[in-house]
Simulated assay, not measured.
Amino acid sequence: MTYDTVRIMLDEVRSADVFYDTSAGAGVVRLLARRLTARWPDLRGLNLLGLGYTAPFLSEWRDQSALTVAAHLGTVPDTMLHRHEADCVVSCSHLPFPDLSFDRILMVHALETAPSGRELLRSVWKVLRDNGKLILIVPNRRGLWALSDTTPYGQGTPYSQRQVRRLLQEGMFHVETCETALYPPLFPLLRSPRLSTAIERAGETVLPACGGVVILEAVKNLWGGVPLTVGKRTFSLRRRLVEAE
């Protein structure tokens, strides 16, 4: 992992930490948490892993799940771990958990800043149980939020729905649902819960592809294979002549 990669990840954590302490950040959590709890209403007895910056969202299930782990990607100083409510810091290419450890994995502010999205998803595939589920939230390339670098949703690489679907399929995941969310414009309208909720619901109907983020729920593809690299090869064939009696 290069110095620039570590710096980008650290800047992402800092910007997320500052953003979610604001009223606008609280508005984002309120809108997205409604989507998340609709997908996962009851996690009693299940192990939950959050990758990226997930502390504001994991609180929705912390009293339910049997185990909740919040993991940052990259290198974060110890003084920031307590402030971010993170349990550990992990590498994108290797998650320090046994295979098949978690029933649910939530990824927020993770894929778009990872040095290799394919490696990260492959590591996630290993630690997710065979009947487990993954929710991935990434900035939407077609949304307004990806155009502003004043929020964590304007950091890293945004994705279209087609791009992130393809990336998940290459990582041996099957996408069950895909939708966009976060329709209200930045800051002002998010401070009003009633108005921002009304705009969110209207956006789902009027502009279903133009939300600020893409939310996907996926399961493991247990029957898929790792694609082979196609290349030109030459073979030297030898003929062996056998004298018939």
Rank of each mutant, 00 (worst) to 15 (best):
T75W: 15
L67A: 11
L228W: 12
A24V: 01
F187R: 07
G27R: 02
P139Q: 01
S93W: 02
N221P: 05
R44H: 12
A16Y: 04
T151Y: 04
V108Q: 07
E119I: 01
L120D: 04
H84Q: 13
T113L: 03
D103L: 01
R44Q: 12
T229E: 12
R62N: 10
W223M: 14
L95E: 06
S93E: 10
S65L: 01
R166Y: 07
D42A: 00
H84T: 15
T54R: 10
R194E: 04
T180R: 08
W145D: 01
R162I: 02
T113Q: 07
G171W: 02
E85Y: 14
L136T: 12
M107P: 01
P77D: 08
P152W: 01
L31G: 03
T205Y: 06
L241R: 15
D11R: 14
L128A: 06
R34G: 11
R7F: 12
G212Y: 00
V6T: 13
E243D: 09
R142D: 14
D149M: 08
R141H: 07
K126V: 06
R35E: 11
A181S: 14
A181E: 06
A202T: 14
Y159P: 00
G224R: 12
R129S: 04
V226G: 06
L222H: 13
L207F: 12
P185H: 05
M9A: 15
R166A: 11
G231I: 07
A146C: 10
R7Y: 09
E176T: 10
R201K: 13
S15E: 07
V213M: 03
P208W: 09
D11M: 13
L167R: 00
A209D: 15
V13W: 11
S116A: 06
R129M: 07
R233A: 14
L195W: 09
A66E: 09
T180N: 10
R62G: 01
G231P: 04
Y159N: 00
P227G: 13
V226I: 14
L100F: 05
S236A: 14
S196A: 15
W125I: 02
S15Q: 12
H94T: 08
T205M: 03
L10Y: 14
G117K: 06
T157E: 08
T150H: 09
L10E: 13
D130R: 10
G225F: 15
V18A: 11
L111C: 09
S65I: 00
S123E: 11
S160G: 14
Y3D: 13
K220R: 13
V230D: 10
T79Y: 10
C88D: 02
I137D: 00
W223P: 00
G225T: 14
V76N: 02
P227I: 11
Q64F: 06
K232L: 13
V108I: 15
E200S: 01
